[in-house]
Amino acid sequence: MLEPSILTASLVHGLANGAVYALVALGLSLVYGVLHIINFAHGALLMAALYGVYFLVERLGLDPYAAIPILVPAAGAAGYLLHRWVVAKASRGREEAVLLVTLGIALVLENLAVALFRSDTRTIETGWAFAMVAVGPALLPAAKLAAAAGALLAVALLWALVRATDLGRAIRAVAKDREAARLVGIDVEHVFALAFAIGTATLGAAACLLLPTYYVSPQVGHGFVLIAFTIVVLGGMGSFWGAFWGGLLIGVVESLGGLFLGESLGQIGIFAIFIATLLLRPTGLFGRAV
């Protein structure tokens, strides 16, 4: 039988990972809520952001956390332009076409990454990479704890943006009724692109938080997009707190799954949850019937 302390340690690890998953999933959920499409490029954009951090750290010698104020606005700007110039133009406003355009962007980005950086797995070296912090019975790498704290802070900022700013209100108005939003003078196309930009900006933050304990390769986004999609479905499509709690839950499930079933089977629990959600509660934990 397992010792309780191992179980708790696994829980803490899961929650720490889950906080970052929640941040990644929130970006996906926000874009879904406004544009009503699953952004299949979300994982590839995270990969691009991870390469961004990698080169800022390796070439300019920046600390990965010091890269946050550079990468978040850069990722946001890239997302805005990507939506305005590629997604909106190529899809001509048809939602099913938007879906395919984002899939196309993912393919282009991944192959571009293979061509430019080859498919090597890269990691960064930081002075504090091996520093450990005790959290209850768990011994957590300091970088993982920092990532979780940073992700929670980013989630809080995102929440404040959505709830308490004019842009946040406009985003929620557009999500619900585009035409009524136009009638109060909201530039709906601008808000679409801004929502997309916020979605990619969250990836900029997530990339800076992740890389110290993670790696980057052209395919690194695949795992994340599946996890994020599962979280969004589990929490309820477009639901903010659904994505947050769903992220933490999935982090824990993955960690406990790894503990009981071994690393390679650890993710099976995530997909079991995904299928169970679709079968038993297709609107998700926090979702509303459409």
């Binding site: 004019d166 209100r169 406009a170 108005a173 619900k176 003078g185 909201i186």
Partner: peptide, 23 residues
Amino acid sequence: PEGRRVFPDLSVHENLLLGAYRR
């Protein structure tokens, strides 16, 4: 507009704030 088209999930106050979004 016809059918009023208030933003149902937003509070009364938020709906009013949005009225001044552009002007």
